[in-house]
Amino acid sequence: MHGKLVDMVLTNSIDRRALADLLFQLADDELCIGHRDSEWLGLAPDIEEDVAFSSIAQDEVGHATFYYELLAELSDCSADALAFARPANERRNALLTERENGDWAHTIVRHFFYDTFDALRLEALADSEYRPLSEGVAKIRREERYHLLHLHLWFVRLGGAGGEARKRMEFAIDQLWSDVGGLFSWGAWEEELLTKKIIPVSSFELQHRWQERVRPVFAEAGIPWIEDLQQPEKDGRVGEHSPEMDRLLLDLSSVYNLDPAAQW
């Protein structure tokens, strides 16, 4: 249905698992960040930003829905069951996306880091040999472009404003930096995904590109660049998560779990 490669993917159980793993990374990242974004509803620093930021949150959950629906086609589960019923150790999102919201600086830094990464990931996936993905990614990239413009502006303005804003930005960067390295992992199946050209770019290369893009923005914001990116203690891409993820899931699924078999 989606071309020769998909047929091959679907008939080879290893490839199928590798592909599903990648789709879970995409879906879980977008669901977590969209969920965290949506917690700002009604509470953003001004009313105009509340409306703008909610659009971003909706886009992220919309993208997650697209990925979960691709996954639903590969499995017997519904997109909702995949989004709501999987335990933490099956979740493939990077730790950065599950962290609880801090102040507005924390939200801007996290989102700017994530969106820059996501733009690079989508850029790479636009060349994926898995067509349902590369086709969907084209639409998603149009929306993500605006998120990145918005977050870039916030990052530079808050960083450049000096005073309390600058202090809070530096504190947020300090807090989040150790999670950045975890974004670039392609999980347990990187080799298979690379060989089959489902992902065209290694995690090493992705990290390099991210640093190239973010460094000039630090300069623009007048924030000193940090050279080292550490490998995180926990790799979300293989199902290792923080207690913050458990709390996120408890919230996310609290109604769904009242009766997973019911219609909601």
Binding site: I47, V51, S54, Q58, V61, D80, W264
Partner: peptide, 20 residues
């Protein structure tokens, strides 16, 4: 944050955004 399906989550987000 607790809306029980993806569709409901999107809808209630959009609704609360409208109120703002």
């Amino acid at each position: 944050p607790k809306a029980p399906t993806l569709k409901r989550k999107l809808a209630i987000m959009a609704k609360v955004q409208d109120e703002m």
